[in-house]
């Protein structure tokens, strides 16, 4: 069949097929038949869908060893946030102990809620800025401040003051979106494979900067629970066994350093707060390398005892630290 132009319209002209055309069509048909057969044979499977192998990564241990002459736990009281943070880290040997030149540092404050600094639902932005500056001064090549917020992340980072404070201090603020998580082997009792923000996989050092807050289910939210903000996925199920979950989280994410913000403490209606009546000014910074001890020490701001918080004993049993912080080398200092 061929088409010929006639006038301005197309018209069909019928003529017998030639041998060449017949052989060409036969060849094409045979090729197609062979192709379909090959496609079918090669892809035959007893599975309904093709198996895709997922990459399950592990997190590295971000901890370091501190020489004997330095404190393992430091507590600083005062009124000026920046010097307090500096002093607290100085008592541990200075930021150079923790950060090697060129390190990529991840800072994990609590930026869970769309609240302002005075409401003490998020870490104090001045504490975040002070730690960022310390890291910069110690030669960190990149400082990333990130958290997986519970309210809208843009609003949380903006209204908590942390975005502005961190950026001005020289950090990069990262808001993890839907594609920013990597399936990670948490090797926990409850937490097996769980999505973790990809920034943790790219970091050399992790600094946890929690705030001391009341929490109805758990009793409190401190440093170990703050690591909740490292993961995505269906994390609201963790409440069903919160203490084992916290111990699992703290076993999987082992920060280099923890700086606890107890400048303003949320005493009631946590972890969201909302009213200034819920907040008490405690003007304290606690720093250290033992996440269990720091949490245990911070209980005094919430009138709690370690016995009420099974995650602490679980943490100690797993070798994450000690509940009795008095057993550590501790230094306390009072600034102006």
């Amino acid at each position: 069949m061929a088409r010929e132009r006639q006038g301005s319209k197309y018209k069909r002209v019928v003529r017998p097929r030639t041998r060449r055309e017949f052989l060409r069509d036969l060849g094409a048909t045979a090729l197609a038949a062979g192709g379909f057969t090959a496609l079918g044979m090669l892809n035959y499977s007893e599975r309904p869908v093709r198996e895709v192998l997922r990459d399950i990564e592990k997190l590295k241990d971000f901890r370091i060893q501190l020489p004997e002459q330095f404190a393992q736990l430091s507590v600083v009281h005062g009124s000026q946030v920046e010097p307090m943070v500096k002093e607290a880290i100085e008592l541990l040997g200075g930021m150079e102990r923790f950060i090697t030149k060129g390190d990529r540092v991840l800072i994990k404050p609590n930026v869970g809620w769309d609240r302002q600094p005075e409401q003490a639902a998020n870490t104090n932005p001045e504490v975040v800025a002070a730690v960022v500056r310390q890291c910069r001064d110690a030669g960190a090549s990149e400082v990333v401040v990130t958290d997986v917020s519970l309210n809208d992340p843009q609003r949380c980072f903006f209204r908590s003051g942390i975005q502005t404070a961190a950026q001005q201090a020289g950090a990069v603020v990262e808001l993890p979106g839907g594609n920013d998580f990597i399936d990670t082997d948490m090797q926990g009792e409850l937490l097996k494979v769980w999505p973790v923000a990809r920034h943790y996989h790219a970091a050399d050092k992790v600094i946890n900067i929690p705030i001391v807050k009341h929490h109805s289910l758990c009793g409190c939210t401190l440093g170990m629970k703050n690591l909740y903000g490292a993961i995505g996925g269906r994390r609201n199920q963790l409440h069903q066994d919160i203490h084992t979950s916290i111990a699992d989280l703290a076993s999987a994410v082992r920060p280099t350093l923890t700086v606890m913000d107890a400048v303003r403490v949320l005493k009631h209606n946590g972890p969201t707060g909302g009213s200034l009546d819920d907040v008490s000014r405690e003007n304290t910074i606690i720093a250290g390398i033992d996440p269990v001890a720091i949490d245990a020490y911070s209980l005094k701001f919430l009138d709690l005892t370690p016995e009420k918080l099974p995650f602490l004993a679980l943490g100690e049993a797993r070798g994450l630290g000690v509940v009795d912080w008095r057993r550590l080398r501790m230094k306390e200092s009072q600034l102006g």
Partner: peptide, 21 residues
């Protein structure tokens, strides 16, 4: 979960933004 399945939860209470909740 706490009402029907005897399982700890109260995520709702944690999230509730008002003060008092």
């Amino acid at each position: 979960l706490p009402w029907a399945m005897h399982t700890e939860c109260i995520v709702c209470e944690e999230m509730c933004p008002t003060s008092p909740k």
